[in-house]
């Protein structure tokens, strides 16, 4: 059930697509880096505590 966007359909859809893409990219990059560093910290903490 697409709303009737009329002659501005491209305009509205491209604005939504660009914005949502940017937001998704930002969230993805944040999560990716967060996961990576979380794992790395666990690894290093384990190594440090093993050594005492």
């Amino acid at each position: 059930m697409m709303p009737e966007l009329g002659k501005y359909a491209d305009t509205v859809l491209s604005a939504y697509a660009a914005s949502l893409l940017l937001l998704a990219g930002l969230i993805a990059v944040s999560l990716w880096r967060g996961r990576k560093l979380r794992a790395e910290m666990k690894r290093i903490e384990a190594r440090v505590s093993r050594r005492g």
Binding site: S30, R33, G34, L37, R38, E40, I44, R47, V48
Partner: peptide
């Protein structure tokens, strides 16, 4: 909040590596 947590971890990793 999430990204600040990431930065805190990055800082901690840095400190641990330096100590090592």
């Amino acid at each position: 909040f999430y990204r600040t947590g990431t930065e805190i971890r990055a800082r901690r990793i840095r400190a641990l590596m330096a100590r090592e």
